[in-house]
Every structure is written in structure tokens, then in C-alpha cells.
Nucleic acid binder design. Structure first.
Lengths: 95, 95
DNA sequence: GTTGTATTTCATCTTTTAATGTAATAGTTG
DNA sequence: CAACTATTACATTAAAAGATGAAATACAAC
């Protein structure tokens, strides 16, 4: 890996390395969810979730679509899914 | 994944998500290196590298042995190696 | 034991990140 | 259009992380 790639990768990991954001990514593994549905499982404020979602969007990790006044989020980068799956098998083998 | 595991995983990712620390881990993928050897490739101060190494040690990611007045560092958790390898194939396929 | 090299510790400063509360926007329904 | 819901933007504050330089430790060699 070259420095440039390492920097990019570090930035990506950093965006995943907050408990709330990692949990959001786990929740979005197999389905899309609205902000409200996420908040129901994450236990923080709406505004806070919105900010975390923005960080993930900025990294191009998640995407969203609008429907009525709901915004449905989903993971847009297949590689992230694979990475999460790998972390799961490596670090939580029994689940 | 449960919240407890997510928190642990986020902490682990966080410790890997700094450019210098990620680079150190990449350098240590296939060999052990002293602090000086690492510094030669990372371009920051000795003290700074020492601090980053401490963070990685605190996470149990790397281990070290002493020889004379050199300290040789190596990755102690096989899972980290696998994770780095996976990131490599996913995000830097052409290298 | 003094000199020299390698590494770490410590204190400080700066920067970044995260949380919180409030106001704003966008869309829906009656 | 008024009332309501979902989401975001903004401003502020609090907390954590990172960099830096100087001093301290550890070991080796002369």
C-alpha cells in the first residue's frame, strides 16, 4: 500500500470507528432504515444520528432515498459489507 | 453483534484508523521492526511513533521483544493480519 | 564511569471530534 | 393554510486525540 492509499483507508476506517456509526452500519447490513428506525435502536438524539449519517454519507459508505418525509438509508459500497462480514467472522465467531 | 461487541470493535478500528498507525501495521505485516526502522519510513518524531505504538500495544494488536537497546515490534493478533489483508484485496485490488 | 544510541515519559498546546439544544426545512394530512 | 412528523442545519460546549520538545530511562561500548 502506498501512503496515499493508507491515508484514504485510514479515513475510511475512522468513519467506521465510532460506536454509533458502526452500529448503524451493522443495522444496515441487510436492510434499509429510516433515521427514526435507526434512532429507535441506537439511543441518542435525532440530531446526533443525523450528524453521524452525514459522516458516513460523506465517505460514500451509505446512500439514501427519500419517500414522503422519511429518508431511507442503505449501504452503498459492497466492499463495506464484505469488510463488516469479515470483522464479524474474525472477532465474533460464535454469533 | 451486540452493543458490547460493537463498542469493542469500534475501539479496535479506532486504534487502526490513524494514518501513522495503519502504516505501522502495514509495515509489520510480514516482519518485525524496531522503532527506528519504523521511523525511517514514517516521517515523524520518535516520540510520536512511540506514542502510537503504545496505543497499538494497549489494544493488544502488537507485541514487542527487547534486544540490546532496540525494541522489535510485531503484530501479535493474527486476526488483525487477516483484516488488513482483506482491506487490501477489497480496496487496493490492483497492487 | 562517561559517551553515545534507542526508546519512552511527561507536560503543554493545538486541533478534531462528539453531544446537546434550538431553530429551520421539507413533506403530509386535514 | 394550519398542525404535525421526520430530518437536517446551526451554534455552542465539552471531551478526546495528536503533535511537539525536553527530560528521563535503558542499554551498550569504549
Amino acid at each position: 500500500m502506498q501512503d496515499q492509499q493508507i491515508d484514504a483507508m485510514a479515513k475510511l476506517l475512522k468513519s467506521m470507528s465510532h460506536p454509533i456509526r458502526l452500529k448503524i452500519l451493522c443495522l444496515l447490513q441487510d436492510k434499509e432504515l429510516s433515521v427514526g428506525e435507526i434512532r429507535a435502536q441506537v439511543k441518542t438524539t435525532n440530531a446526533n444520528i443525523s450528524q453521524h449519517l452525514n459522516i458516513l454519507r460523506g465517505q460514500g459508505i451509505i446512500d439514501f432515498r427519500k419517500d414522503a418525509n422519511f429518508i431511507y438509508n442503505r449501504i452503498s459500497d459492497r466492499r463495506i459489507l464484505e469488510l463488516i462480514k469479515k470483522m464479524h467472522t474474525l472477532f465474533c465467531p460464535s454469533m
